[in-house]
């Protein structure tokens, strides 16, 4: 087994990061209509929530969340039919459960979905669910959990995981991004009052895929982090010189500097620490960076 960084993953992450674990469903154009989902709610250790879902394409996604952090573990190595799920999460856990309906079928209304009400059968799953996050940052082991089988009317109108977009997050006044294979960093600055917790929103994402010798990808992991911070952590008053020093779990400082060659370079000791991982550097010459000022354009 060898690991490779998922280069394309990071590009996709920007779009996916603001969605919950079943974000695969959002990109549904050209695909068959949404059919049956299985959703299982779990409680992980150390304050993490765990949502396990199997989508109609028989992908199992285990999403771990805690405040601004989320991690998605996705495997296609799944056996699933109407009421059974069996899957392995490559050294991190395994799932082998059967769904048992409990209570009447419901058709809950969803905001923005009009008459597209899903069909939801509540119930429980019984069997084995075990998951241990990297370096045990969270874990769960249960034999029974609450669950639901859902048939949504469209990909967007899912009851099991509701996506609540924050349109004001698009109202940035300046932003900076840096990316290299497997890692993405984004900082957006807002006018006062637009976002909660400060004027700057920092995001970091990583993606990695585990690949077998035969080329199969039994496990893909996406991690996403979002932290608000004060305006003083994003200093861009002089557009030739930008400095960011986001709060934990980030550490260090990143600096965009215009050299005497009139080339913009991104450097510093900025890094981010995801739960269960070593700090990941987010600055250096291998990163491609971009600074944008709304209404003025971007420099790279």
């Amino acid at each position: 087994m060898r690991m490779r960084q998922a280069a394309v993953a990071v590009l996709a992450l920007l779009a996916l990061s603001c969605l919950p674990g079943n974000a695969w469903a959002k990109v549904g154009r050209g695909r068959p209509p949404a059919k049956q989902w299985i959703d299982i709610e779990l409680e992980g250790s150390n304050g993490y929530s765990i949502h396990l879902s199997v989508n109609p394409r028989r992908h199992l996604i285990l999403q771990v969340t805690n405040e601004g952090f989320s991690a998605e573990y996705m495997t296609r190595d799944v056996f699933a039919d109407a009421d059974r799920v069996k899957a392995k999460l490559l050294g991190l856990g395994k799932i082998s459960v059967r769904f048992h309906p409990r209570g009447p079928v419901r058709h809950p209304s969803l905001p923005g979905c009009g008459r597209k009400r899903p069909t939801v059968q509540p119930g429980v799953v019984r069997g084995t669910i075990s998951f241990v996050g990297e370096r045990e940052y969270t874990q769960v082991k249960v034999r029974e959990a609450e669950a639901a089988v859902e048939e949504p009317m469209s990909w967007r109108c899912r009851y099991g995981v509701r996506f609540e977009p924050k349109p004001r997050e698009r109202e940035w006044v300046s932003k900076f991004s840096a990316e290299e294979e497997g890692a993405y960093f984004l900082a957006r600055k807002y006018r006062p009052g637009v976002i909660e917790g400060g004027q700057v929103l920092y995001l970091a994402e990583t993606g990695e895929a585990f690949e077998t010798a035969s080329g199969q990808v039994p496990l893909t992991i996406y991690r996403h982090l979002s932290v608000p911070a004060l305006a003083s952590t994003f200093r861009d008053t002089h557009p030739e010189h930008l400095t960011v020093s986001p709060p934990p779990p980030f550490s260090g400082t990143g600096t965009l500097t215009r050299t005497p060659e009139s080339v913009f370079t991104w450097g510093g000791d900025l890094s981010v620490q995801f739960p269960g991982l070593d700090p990941i550097p987010l600055a250096g010459p291998s990163f491609e960076s971009e600074y944008c000022l709304r209404g003025s354009g971007c420099i790279r």
Partner: peptide
Amino acid sequence: CVVNPLRDR
């Protein structure tokens, strides 16, 4: 002439 691309497009 040395300009910032955001100020002098």
